[in-house]
Amino acid sequence: MSKIFKNKLKFAPEMKYNIAFIMILVSAQNMLAQSSQSFMTSGGKINVVFAVIFIVFIGIIYYLIRIDRKISKLENK
């Protein structure tokens, strides 16, 4: 078991994807801000709820894709 840990863990690529993810979310926010206020507030602000659910969904899918990529790398070895 102790042999396993002698390898260094590499974090740099993961961090890069994290930063990309946060940038995408920020730009999505900006896009929302530019789109008309009336769209978000129409229908009793129901679209705000959809935006929130969408972002939670996107976040979790992004997390899953990262795990998926890691596992497929393992499979290729």
């Binding site: 926010q29 929302l32 978000m40 929130v52 976040g59």
Partner: peptide, 14 residues
């Protein structure tokens, strides 16, 4: 937590 901050921010905007 990050998702909570972002969704909270959108909710706060409106």
């Amino acid at each position: 937590g990050v998702l909570g901050l972002i969704t909270g921010s959108i909710w706060a905007k409106y």
